[in-house]
Write a protein that binds this DNA or RNA. Structure first.
Lengths: 204, 204
DNA sequence: CGGCATCCGTGACGATACTG
DNA sequence: CAGTATCGTCACGGATGCCG
């Protein structure tokens, strides 16, 4: 785990930053929290990263035990990158950062790139913190795209795109992305579904 | 809050990293969580940082509302840097990073710098997570130095050096620093004090 | 002496082009 | 599609100088 440039401090925070403190690393983890991703898809959802930096970060993360590189099954055989258990444990770090950074989302910039699933992390934390929310899959539909959140005992997770069989569908009006800085938007949100999860979302 | 180099992504994590993602920034926050610090003391407890980088980080952090620069009272009038409320809210981020990075402390490196108060963050989280621990001040004595932890309702905090009037003193044997990767060490630890906090520590 | 600012060498980063 | 190669630029780290 010795990076090229270490802080060389016997401190847990410094050690963590030795591994994930470099530019782009935590944003790659953010993308991979949505599930396995191919190189090109990662590059597409990380606007601004150059190809060589993305390649070298992935190699470092593989060496450090954060991701694994796996070949997909023959029909459409490609390489995908996937988080290891250790990599998934960064969820708490990403969650804390998202909560802290949500405040800065109040001023959108015209140069900002936007992806629907970037809202999943704050929304997930919000849903998981609600009292008495049952397990299940919530599909979230936004103007910019869709993603789905799985609330379960093994901790929540999310993935890009629509869900296969959602327990509830949360449809948000256009422009809603700019309002949900980590909070569940009440105005204009429509919840579909008839299970306990959908009821809980309607009650919130 | 627009740094020279922004990720330009409408994402809470990316926004947080725009502000605190650069090298040394979060370690400066770690130091200032121990209380107000002068420039020279910061430089001494951040081995490896160059003088110009420390100066420019402090300026950026002041511009971004993380720290304030204040002049001390005339006897020994110097400038100190102090976290704002927004800066202190990074405590959760540091805590999550410390918990994740504690695992890497199992292999100490001979080039590692060591400071006693770097152990405060993991130890604090551990103590605050114990069930039924009362409020109060714990002084922790190590071979490398001492610090004290204040457990209270407004969230825990720590500071360098001994406490003025500790409710409990936790004395750790030499070399204990390498064992407490976030856990309270039981072997050879001596708890002094007779209040409920000392009793709770003895029971843990 | 504390608190930086300046200069400089090295390495990381970003954009584009190119290859298996 | 999945990277590697090349190159200009900028950030970082170390040393030194300045100024109260």
């Amino acid at each position: 785990m010795m990076p090229r440039r270490s802080y060389d401090q016997y401190c847990a925070v410094a050690r963590a930053l030795d591994t994930v403190g470099e530019r782009w690393t935590l944003l790659i983890v953010r993308e991979l929290l949505a599930g396995p991703r191919r190189y090109t898809d990662l590059h597409a959802d990380l606007p601004g990263v150059s190809t060589d930096v993305l390649a070298s970060r992935l190699k470092e993360m593989e060496r450090d035990g954060l991701v694994t590189r796996r070949r997909l099954a023959p029909p459409g055989a490609a390489y995908v990158y996937e988080l290891t258990r250790r990599g998934r444990e960064l969820f708490a770090v990403l969650g804390a950062l998202a909560e802290w950074g949500a405040e800065e989302l109040r001023d959108p910039r015209p140069t900002d790139a936007v992806r629907a699933h970037w809202a999943a992390l704050p929304l997930m934390r919000h849903l998981a913190a609600l009292p008495g929310v049952p397990s299940g899959v919530v599909e979230v539909r936004l103007d910019e795209g869709a993603f789905h959140i799985e609330l379960g005992d093994g901790g929540p997770s999310y993935a890009d795109g629509p869900a296969e069989r959602p327990d509830a569908v949360l449809a948000l009006p256009p422009g809603a992305l700019h309002d949900l800085g980590g909070t569940l938007p009440a105005d204009g949100a429509k919840v579909t579904g008839d299970g306990p999860l959908a009821d809980a979302l309607r009650g919130a």
